[in-house]
């Protein structure tokens, strides 16, 4: 009898989980199509189909293939990788407030971008014009990796990495990066200040297939690798000692997971700027729906991250067309109150 009850319960749970994933995939497809359809110029599904097939009218085809499709792919890639990295870091650090910013990714990328924007003319003058558009993303990527490597390096002591130390080192290094950014912002001219301000608010615009292709490939490979950490993250919930007792090489896993997150998020930040809140809020919402088991939580967070970021992008593009608000404003403005509502409803959290 007990076995039968268990099986029935599992059946119900399995159906519920399957339903959640079907709903998330359906929502993702809907917003992805919406991203192609909606905008200052509204396109029909047949126009989009023709454009994709390569035999549409020139203007809709250009809008779809050169503007909206790369933007949609980038949004999916960034949303999914930010969310999965947030879920991994929250699990790894056993800290619900963890997000990619904690290990210095955003701080490092921002510092490198500020250096290039404000001081770039001093040492990048000889760079050919064809390479110039890629200087900022490359700098951001390198900055993200460098600062993350510094934080992970300093967080280690006697070959072991303490989570408390990691957080404190992250705070210190981010503060130093922040001071550097503040100084360079202070000495920047009006044009540089405007560039800095818009980059720091994040945007999926101004992207072509080349940059999107590289960035999204890095993000997707990293995210798939992170899915393999699901069981280890479950064991981390027992605490590091018990996780070690269950067979995990604790320091190796912490270091490699943080490094992969840095690569994934660095690839996104480098091309779209820092986009807040998705990495923090998506895993929380996913956890409330589907539970804490990471083999479900990681993919659910990723799908939800993609949906949320594309929703935010749809809103910023369609509120006052053809003007476009920074996407970071939308993710915080929409995500913040919604997150607060969920937290207040979930009394046990």
């Amino acid at each position: 009898m007990a076995l039968l009850e268990t099986t029935q319960f599992r059946g119900r749970r399995f159906s519920f989980n399957a339903l959640v994933f079907v709903a998330l995939v359906a929502a993702l497809i809907t917003v992805a199509v919406g991203e192609l359809v909606l905008g200052p110029v509204r396109l029909s599904l047949s126009q989009i189909y023709d454009a994709m097939a390569g035999n549409g009218e020139p203007m809709p085809a250009a809008i779809v293939t050169q503007i909206r499709a790369p933007r949609m792919v980038l949004g999916l890639g960034i949303g999914m990788s930010l969310a999965i990295c947030g879920a991994v870091l929250q699990g790894l650090l056993r800290n619900p407030l963890a997000d990619p910013g904690l290990i210095g990714i955003s701080g490092g990328a921002s510092a490198a971008v500020v250096v290039v924007i404000v001081l770039g003319d001093l040492f990048l003058g000889e760079i050919p014009a064809s390479v110039r558009p890629y200087v900022l993303p490359i700098a951001a990527f390198c900055g993200a990796l460098l600062v993350t490597a510094l934080i992970l390096g300093f967080a280690q002591k006697n070959g072991e990495m303490s989570i408390g130390r990691l957080i404190l080192v992250g705070v210190a290094i981010n503060a130093i990066a922040g001071a550097g950014i503040g100084f360079l912002t202070y000495i920047s001219n009006d044009t540089q200040l405007r560039d800095l301000t818009f980059w720091s608010m994040g945007s999926l615009a101004k992207t072509g297939w080349f940059g999107v292709g590289i960035s999204v490939t890095i993000m997707m490979i990293s995210s798939v690798v992170l899915l393999r950490y699901a069981r280890a993250l479950d064991l981390f919930q027992l605490g590091e000692r018990a996780a070690f007792h269950s067979g995990l090489a604790i320091t190796k896993i912490k270091f490699s997971a943080c490094a992969i997150c840095a690569v994934a998020v660095g690839a996104g930040v480098s091309i779209a700027g820092p986009i807040g809140f998705i990495g923090l809020v998506s895993p929380h919402i996913a956890r409330m729906i589907i539970g804490s088991a990471h083999h479900l939580l990681l993919p659910a967070s990723a799908l939800l991250g993609g949906v949320l970021l594309l929703c935010a992008d749809l809103i910023v593009r369609n509120v006052i067309p053809p003007q476009e608000l920074p996407i970071g404003l939308a993710t915080s403005l929409i995500g913040g109150p919604f997150f607060l509502f969920l937290l207040l409803r979930e009394k046990r959290l």
Partner: peptide, 27 residues
């Protein structure tokens, strides 16, 4: 012995075991 090899030979119950996630007993 690697942590994995060790985990196949011994299991340890800590004095104050903890759990951060909202797992059910079965999980």
């Amino acid at each position: 012995l690697t942590p994995r090899q060790l985990s196949r030979r011994r299991a340890v119950l800590e004095q104050s075991p903890s759990l951060s996630a909202n797992f059910c007993v079965d999980e």
